[in-house]
């Protein structure tokens, strides 16, 4: 049931300085640690612990989600396209899951 991250960006060929909007969604249970299974035993917490987005090596955004974030976490953010490069995204969870996605961003000539 493993499916890749779903990624949408408003433009892959922005003008320099253009604000790019990014949406990404993954399938993840976001188990809060509060719930009990049918025998009354707690279900082990398994939350997304970190998401980060970089353009090349430059950090654009990092996100530390908690138990209040919905299942199949949806992330939307914006950044200014100041250089061409690879938009890299990374997800980590409590159980050591590591997911990555990337997209090339190429500035349009002015």
């Amino acid at each position: 049931m493993s499916r890749p991250p779903r990624l949408w960006i408003s433009s892959a060929t922005p003008a320099k300085g253009e604000i790019i909007r990014v949406r990404v969604q993954i399938q993840h249970v976001m188990e809060s640690g509060f719930r009990l299974d049918w025998n009354g035993a707690p279900l082990e917490r398994n939350l997304l612990t970190r998401f980060e987005a970089r353009l090349n090596e430059t950090l654009l955004m990092e996100w530390e989600p908690g138990a209040s974030i919905s299942q199949n976490p949806y992330v939307e953010f914006a950044f200014a396209a100041r250089e061409s490069g690879t938009l890299r995204m990374l997800w980590l969870d409590d159980r050591g899951m590591r997911l990555e996605a990337e997209r090339e961003i190429i500035l349009s000539p002015a």
Partner: peptide, 30 residues
């Protein structure tokens, strides 16, 4: 660009079928 929905089923301790719905709202060519 498409979006998607997936439904998964299992059976609860009461014997009733239960549904899990996964909406993917991010529209993508893949």
């Amino acid at each position: 660009e498409a979006i998607s929905v997936e439904f998964l089923y299992d059976v609860g301790p009461d014997g009733l079928v239960r549904q899990t719905q996964i909406d993917i709202d991010v529209r993508t060519p893949d």
